[in-house]
């Protein structure tokens, strides 16, 4: 469960002065649904997700994940969160197994439990055949599975995806999309950001349109379609933007 209340994140930029990357955003995500953040580049999606993942501290407002405040109980929150942005960000010189082991150990998993979990994950993701291959020698699809295993190693209940299919072709993107769906099937809380309308339409149960750091509309895909009187999500998006400005 994710609860965001009046979240604000401001940066000081030498050239632009005070930048309000996120400016008063509120929403809630419940387990067993996929919540989508939809917006153009620079809208504030990544910043919002980074605050959720405790990578950034909020300037104002509060965020709590499974009842724990991200500022006051950072490490506890991180134990419950799995974060995936680029699926190909791996340590090239480590093997697939070592990569997943490292994150398991960082999460404080006892060795025996870690090895058992690795076996289970590698079986489920069909990774045994390349588990001792160096990450930089793996194919894109194999790398994705390593990233997925890495994200799941500590069995997090809350999943945060920041434009995870960016730069991936259709087939590669499908693996990720399938994985995200599986997370929902297993009752996890899932939040996912994108600027690809089709993906959002296909995956998300509820959407929030984000623009210039603010949330313009929230609702299920069906609600938004009927509200703006169009089936095409791109049109929905454009009209939502116009409504804000």
């Amino acid at each position: 469960m994710i609860e965001v209340r009046q979240l604000a994140k401001h940066f000081r930029d030498r050239k632009r002065g005070l930048v309000k990357a996120v400016d008063g955003v509120s929403f809630t995500c419940t387990p067993g649904e996929i919540f989508g953040l939809l917006g153009i580049n620079g809208a504030g999606k990544t910043t919002t997700l980074r605050v959720l993942a405790t990578l950034l501290q909020p300037t104002a407002g509060s965020v709590s994940i499974d009842g724990r405040d991200v500022v006051r109980e950072g490490p506890e929150v991180r134990k419950r969160v799995g974060f995936l942005s680029t699926a190909t960000a791996l340590y090239g010189r480590l093997t697939a197994r070592e990569m997943v082991e490292y994150f398991g150990r960082l999460n404080g998993m006892p060795e025996a439990a870690l090895q058992a979990r690795i076996d289970e994950l590698f079986t489920r993701l069909e990774m045994h055949e390349f588990r001792d291959g160096r990450c930089d020698k793996l194919s894109t699809g194999q790398k994705q599975r390593v990233s997925i295993a890495r994200t799941l190693i500590h069995d997090p209940q809350v999943m945060i995806f920041d434009e995870p299919t960016n730069g991936l072709d259709v087939l590669a993107a499908r693996t990720i999309v399938q994985f995200i769906r599986e997370c929902r099937e297993r009752g996890k809380t899932v939040i996912f950001s994108s600027h690809v309308m089709s993906e959002v339409a296909r995956l998300c149960d509820r959407i929030a349109v984000v623009h210039q750091g603010r949330m313009s509309v929230t609702g299920t895909v069906a609600e938004l379609r009927s509200h703006f009187g169009t089936e095409d999500l791109e049109d929905v998006f454009i009209r939502a933007l116009e409504a804000t400005t």
């Binding site: 990578l55 490490p75 991180r78 942005s85 960000a89 791996l90 960082l106």
Partner: peptide
Amino acid sequence: ERGTIETLLCSPVS
């Protein structure tokens, strides 16, 4: 450069 810093910082280790 590799893009791994975010995932590292997401782990519970301080």
